[in-house]
């Protein structure tokens, strides 16, 4: 009996242990589910991407230059595109920025809702990364006070756009944005009556007014709908896309093609010296808007379309 009794107790004890262990494990899993990301890792990634973005022309842009060079009817235009390819080679070889305007540091961060950012202030970490990236890679610091024009000295503060997304990863993009092309960008609050024709006119007017100023061949980020602020941020966000990517929204994809063809009839050409390659790609983002509104944001991007990304 004793033996039996004790064996039952042993079994009970074992079962209780297993149950406790299982519940503890479940508890542990629940505790562990927000994945931890150190903000210092964000800072390191930003520092690295600032350097990579400014020194190395992205492959999609290089390919677009090569394709455009083959199709450009203007001899001067062909020469300019050839020089831009040569410039990218020299920059990579000599670890020299592609362009002296190394941009304001624009950073997009898609933060997974299951990611737990630890170890400090996230935005300060981004700024720390910008500070290091610009200093270590001999990049030009272009951030200054708007009135006194006194340079902040380290290219901070960065312009940071965050968005919460499903998952537990942090996806970040560094998009250094030059002043020459940014100055040619526009936001329009159109009357709904002007419709699609009005949107096209807004884009054409923007490119025509910009002419040679924003270093063509340009790339256009066009956001339609939303609000004044939302349109502008989305227009910039489209610039994260690869030049050969296809827009999953068929309406936007079609408009991208139409606008590209229209803009390239303007004759502005590479460096604005005349030609068929005024624009390499138009990105379009369409979202619903207020019944009273038709917002359109046109973000003009120069040919030094720098964009580098990392997933943490």
């Amino acid at each position: 009996m004793d033996t039996n009794c004790s064996s039952i107790e042993v079994l009970r004890a074992q079962s209780a242990r297993i149950q406790r262990a299982q519940s503890a494990k479940k508890w542990e899993l629940e505790l562990a589910s927000p994945r931890t990301v150190e903000v210092s890792a964000v800072a390191d990634a930003v520092a690295r991407l600032c350097g990579e973005a400014d020194l190395y022309l992205p492959e999609d842009v290089r390919q677009a230059f090569t394709r455009a060079q083959a199709e450009e009817p203007s001899l001067v235009g062909q020469e300019v595109l050839g020089r831009l390819l040569e410039n990218a080679d020299i920059a990579a070889e000599e670890k020299m920025p592609i362009c002296q305007d190394c941009g304001l540091a624009v950073i997009f961060m898609d933060i997974g809702q299951d990611a737990h950012l630890v170890g400090g202030d996230l935005i300060e970490a981004v700024n720390d990364g910008v500070r290091r990236g610009y200093e270590e890679n001999y990049l030009r610091k272009s951030a200054c006070h708007p009135f006194t024009r006194t340079n902040t000295g380290d290219n901070t503060p960065a312009v940071v756009h965050t968005q919460i997304v499903p998952g537990d990863k942090v996806h970040l993009w560094v998009v250094p944005k030059g002043g020459g092309s940014e100055n040619m960008s526009k936001v329009f609050l159109l009357t709904p009556a002007v419709g699609l024709a009005g949107v096209k006119k807004a884009v054409m007017d923007t490119v025509e007014a910009a002419g040679p100023n924003p270093c063509p061949p340009i790339i256009l980020g066009v956001a339609i709908g939303g609000t004044f602020d939302h349109a502008a941020v989305r227009a910039k966000r489209t610039l994260l896309r690869e030049l050969d990517s296809v827009n999953p929204d068929p309406e936007a994809a079609e408009l991208e093609q139409v606008l590209l063809e229209d803009v390239n009839t303007l004759g502005i050409g590479p460096a604005g010296l005349g030609g068929a390659t005024t624009c390499l790609k138009v990105f379009v983002d369409i979202k619903p808007c207020h019944i009273a509104s038709l917002p359109v944001a046109v973000n003009v991007q120069c040919h030094a379309a720098r964009h580098k990304e990392a997933v943490l």
Binding site: R83, L84, I90, P97, I98, C99, D101, P212, C215, H303
Partner: peptide
């Protein structure tokens, strides 16, 4: 006179 905008590394040479 116009230089090619954005060809900063080339110009540096």
């Amino acid at each position: 006179l116009a230089a090619i905008g954005g060809a900063g590394a080339l110009m540096a040479r």
